[in-house]
Amino acid sequence: MKFYIKIIVRLKFQKRRALKFVSRTIPHSGGYNTPKQALGSIPVIVLFIFLTAGYAHSAGVTGGALSASSSGPVELASSSAHVPVQTAADAANPLEEEYKEDEVSDNDTGKAVGEEKAEIADPLEPVNRAMHQFNDKLYFWALKPVAQGYKAVVPEPARISVKNFFSNLGFPARFLSCLLQADFSGAATEAGRFTVNTVWGIGGLLDPSSGKELDLQMQDTDLGQTLGVWGIGQGFYIVWPVLGPSSPRDSVSIAGDYFLYPVSYIDPWYDWLGVRVWQEVNATSLRIGDYESLKNAAVDPYVAFRDAYIQYRLKAVKARKAKMMKSASEEAQSPEREPAVPKKEN
């Protein structure tokens, strides 16, 4: 918005200059009474702005946020030169156009990638589909009605507190995962969060650390991601009854996270089960409707959930890896040199 104001101001300024200039330089056509000439120069100015605006975008880009590639200027030239020609044909019928693979390659953008492939082998598909059906019924017949009743009785702030409480107990698994990923700042953040939330957040019921003052955000990581960061692939797709989508790699994390989760050590097993069910019902009560709309939107829900799971896990591991690389490169480079790098690339 600021930018538009700038243009307008500049435009006004230029208009005034142009007025004076025109009146001074072309006296034979109108002397000092020159609104007509001034008006004549406006389209020229506007034309220039339009011509240049197309370039301006890709050339400047958004600060250091994007790692612009060297192909930037080339593409931009083509986008402003070719597009108008294409439009004439396309405007008639974009449906006639054939699909082409994206020119954006992963290599030169590095961070922000247009399309990436996330696929997983599914040799157990028939069994998995059956398990998917089972979990689906479990949700609609048991979990959802219970969660709805619970939601009707327990007000939302209380349910959020319960969620915070359980998530605070997940600290050991997240802390260890951060350490195993050599993400020491993440581990420190987690330790800080645990202390602050346990002491000041009434045993974890509140989450004061993610507020603006402290800004200690939860490190969303687990042992499965840790294995992923170490370079271990997903393997194939598994749908566990009750626990849902997983893979051999992420199943390791189900086991590991079990042992690192304090609730697992509650003694009589039925108490443990009760607490786990409560946690699950509480969590579900905060997101009733999400599963339904995802399922409704899908043409083949089984494939849709499989793909969503794989995409989600892949991006999470990628984000963790990127964080690791970043902290490694920060250690390697002196802090003064660091900010210069993105500029050079641009």
Binding site: S58, T62, A65, G72, V74, E75, V104, G114, E156, L286
Partner: peptide, 20 residues
């Protein structure tokens, strides 16, 4: 945030903040 993916493609990042 806005990330340019290429000359003519961009990714705009936004978030919806709910109570939970």
């Amino acid at each position: 945030q806005e990330n340019m993916l290429s000359g003519n493609q961009a990714e705009i990042q936004s978030k919806i903040i709910t109570s939970s």
